[in-house]
Amino acid sequence: MPDQFTEKWDQYSLMAELALKLEGVSPQFGKTVLQKLVYILQAIFRVPCGYGYILYNYGPYSEELADDLSFFASMDGVRVEWGRGSGYEIKKADKTIHFRERGKGFLTQYASQIGDVIEEFGGMNARELELRSTIIYVYQEEPLEKKDMLCRVKEIKPHFTDSEIHNAYQELERWLVSPAT
């Protein structure tokens, strides 16, 4: 039986860090982008964020992360706004820097991985990340031959063109073959 409370300061600090670092880098740092970047951090860069993912409407999705974001926003850790016609935006709030400091140990330990994710994927929009994270998810579940992989992704994501899927796969190949450790 639990005799200690679950602490999530590391996860909150990561959200704070992303909100701060992606300002001016991400075309729109929203809920979908957060979901996919944390997924990539876990799946490719092996950062232990502790979230379980399933395949959902727009690719890998963690309900627990969505809930953590809502609670973090209620503590003024970030502001989450909906822009008409453009989707969600996560922005820094009054306590963002405070919460980043609270999880400094975690952020320091995984600074290079977080930096790499921001560099490689931080400039992508939600749609680009939806496709890339889905490819990673499919690969991690069952590494298939390239042709079969592309077919499976197309079945799941029929609203992407064949060339979009092919190009995204090409970009990701190095991560799929040799995940960072």
Binding site: P2, D3, Q4, T32, Q35, Y56, Y61, D67, S70, Y88
Partner: peptide, 18 residues
């Protein structure tokens, strides 16, 4: 007193993908 803890947590509404 050897207590146990309980953490009922739930979002009534999960924004984003769902």
């Amino acid at each position: 007193f050897e207590p146990f803890v309980d953490e009922p947590n739930k979002s009534w509404y999960s924004g984003g993908e769902s």
